[in-house]
Amino acid sequence: KTVKFDGLQFDFDNPEKALKFALEVAKQKGAEVHIHGDEIKIE
């Protein structure tokens, strides 16, 4: 899975870790997590 935000991109082999990371970043930024297939966007 790939996590994208602020023009940055982070690749994870483990989908659970990717989602956990995305949710943590979103919480800190006050943003929402959007999942599109293998891509997780924080907006």
Rank of each mutant, 00 (worst) to 15 (best):
K1C: 15
K1I: 14
T2S: 09
T2M: 06
T2E: 04
T2N: 05
T2P: 02
T2V: 11
V3G: 03
V3H: 03
V3Y: 00
V3W: 00
V3E: 04
K4T: 12
K4M: 12
K4Y: 13
K4I: 13
K4E: 06
K4R: 11
K4A: 07
K4D: 04
K4N: 07
K4C: 15
K4G: 06
K4Q: 07
F5R: 01
F5E: 03
F5S: 01
F5P: 03
F5A: 02
F5G: 04
F5H: 04
D6E: 08
D6C: 15
D6K: 04
D6Y: 07
D6G: 09
G7Q: 04
G7D: 07
G7S: 06
G7W: 06
G7C: 14
L8Y: 09
L8H: 06
L8M: 11
L8S: 03
L8E: 06
L8T: 04
L8K: 08
L8V: 07
L8W: 06
Q9V: 13
Q9D: 06
Q9S: 12
Q9Y: 08
Q9M: 08
F10Y: 10
F10V: 05
F10E: 02
F10G: 03
D11P: 08
D11R: 08
D11A: 09
D11N: 10
D11H: 14
F12P: 02
F12H: 01
D13C: 14
D13L: 07
D13K: 02
N14A: 06
N14D: 14
N14C: 15
P15R: 09
P15F: 15
P15M: 14
P15N: 09
P15D: 10
P15Y: 14
P15K: 07
P15H: 11
P15I: 14
E16H: 05
E16K: 07
E16P: 00
E16F: 04
E16G: 03
K17C: 15
K17A: 14
K17F: 10
A18T: 03
A18S: 02
A18H: 03
L19I: 06
L19K: 03
L19P: 15
L19D: 08
L19Q: 01
K20N: 09
F21C: 15
F21V: 14
A22D: 10
A22Q: 05
A22E: 12
L23K: 10
L23D: 14
L23P: 12
L23W: 12
L23I: 12
E24I: 04
E24M: 02
E24C: 15
E24W: 06
V25D: 06
V25M: 12
V25P: 00
V25E: 07
V25R: 00
A26C: 14
A26D: 02
A26M: 04
A26G: 01
A26H: 00
A26L: 02
A26S: 04
K27Y: 09
K27W: 06
K27H: 10
K27V: 08
K27Q: 11
Q28M: 10
K29C: 15
K29F: 14
K29V: 13
K29W: 13
G30N: 10
G30K: 06
G30R: 06
G30T: 04
A31T: 07
A31L: 13
A31C: 15
A31E: 05
A31S: 07
E32A: 12
E32C: 15
E32Q: 13
E32H: 14
V33T: 00
V33C: 14
V33P: 02
V33L: 11
V33F: 02
H34Y: 11
H34E: 07
H34G: 05
H34C: 15
H34I: 12
H34Q: 07
H34F: 11
I35M: 10
I35Y: 07
I35W: 11
I35R: 03
I35L: 09
H36V: 12
H36P: 05
H36D: 13
H36T: 11
H36L: 11
H36M: 13
H36E: 11
H36Q: 11
H36F: 12
H36C: 15
G37F: 10
G37P: 07
G37E: 07
G37S: 07
G37Q: 08
D38F: 09
D38I: 11
E39K: 04
E39S: 08
E39D: 07
E39L: 13
E39H: 08
I40N: 01
I40E: 01
I40F: 05
K41L: 15
K41E: 10
K41I: 15
K41G: 06
K41M: 14
K41N: 12
I42T: 02
E43W: 09
E43S: 11
E43C: 15
E43D: 08
E43K: 08
